[in-house]
Design a protein around this nucleic acid. Structure first.
Lengths: 198, 198
DNA sequence: GCTTCATATGTCAATATTGACATATGAAGC
DNA sequence: GCTTCATATGTCAATATTGACATATGAAGC
């Protein structure tokens, strides 16, 4: 059986890059940095993955590049999304919701805390709580920057979508913080019951 | 340079399998089904990944198998976690929190909804809301089954950990539902403003 | 003048994941 | 008797991801 030379469908990383480029044209290097923040909040990729994916997107006609002056040892390429790329992204956004594989290390850890002493479990919960609190603070400060601008209230402006996703991040981290506090109470009362039973 | 014949560190799938086996010994087939539910709520893997991973865990001494009667064309193997495997899992549970790569397709879609008409965006939000509502119902019914049992209040019992993770699922899905309702309001009021501006 | 760092683009080996293919048995329903 | 399905374990090719290696420039600080 012959294999076709790639070109099937755009993977999810491709849509992340198209979404980035639909907001602003960028070089691969800039995309890698924008992928850390803000897109890194919901999608992550290294530059080692980004450069080949850009080449694939270009082969499919979804992006095109122009060479600009830059500091690297090779020509610096600035990419922009094409009409076809924008269309593909739009169609994906409202397309079928396919079940995505779940990879939630935090919950996997907690599902196994019965194996360790309640004191160690409590420490883990407190560490997780700190992480959530730090993320919440970052989201809140970013949200404060966009919340009141008129663009963030125009549903066809990228800032509108940024506002919605940041709001979701804030809400989910607040819920996680409350969950951590609830878990702490559960562990503490269980430890207390154990002690007083003696 | 020679490559060592695997055996470095257990991947995350390995810990998911060890956690499953620490609760109850199982065949690979049973693990694949238990991986769908309940572990599938926070970690997923196909049987094509599970069988090779079991072999690697066995090579490292973390699990061992006995052959039992079964229906398949090959001998059916029942795996159990060893003391070394249990220790490795315990150490991982309270070990360093490494930043995990994020892959959140739902947020990636929403981050791009400015590209589509508000009406289509609204439809997407409603579809996402339905998904969250269905998941919430599943978590709530599972939580109701364990919540009141005494084992679920003993921090060294697996049911305790199940209860904590289910509670987290319920809380996060409730927050997501509220977020969806909030997004609907945002979209509807933006659409209304647009109409009345004419 | 020298070191360090941000800029900049790429490749490659190792590993992880997906989805299909392969195969065989026993039980249930028709 | 035949079909279908759950049981059961595995392999393999394609794809995705990670992390390291490679390389070169200009600016800043010493």
């Amino acid at each position: 059986m012959k294999r076709r030379p790639t070109e099937e469908s755009t993977g999810n990383l491709g849509f992340a890059l198209l979404g980035l480029l639909a907001r602003r044209r960028s070089t691969g290097y800039e995309l890698a940095r924008r992928m850390e923040r803000p897109v890194g909040y919901f999608w992550s990729a290294h530059h080692g993955q980004i450069y080949p994916e850009l080449a694939r997107l270009e082969a499919r006609g979804f992006v095109r590049h122009t060479v600009v002056e830059g500091a690297g040892p090779r020509p610096t390429k600035r990419y922009a999304v094409t009409a076809a790329g924008r269309k593909a992204l739009r169609e994906w956004v409202v397309g079928e919701l396919e079940p995505q594989p779940v990879r939630d290390l935090e919950t996997l850890r907690l599902w196994n805390i019965w194996l360790v002493e309640p004191g160690a479990a409590l420490e883990l919960v407190q560490k997780l709580r700190q992480d959530h609190a730090a993320r919440l603070a970052a989201y809140e400060s970013e949200l404060a920057e966009v919340r009141d601008s008129p663009e963030a209230h125009d549903p066809r402006n990228p800032m509108f979508a940024s506002r919605l996703t940041l709001e979701g991040g804030v809400r989910s981290r607040r819920a996680a913080l409350e969950w951590c506090d609830w878990m702490r109470e559960q562990l503490e009362s269980a430890m207390h019951d154990q002690t007083s039973a003696h």
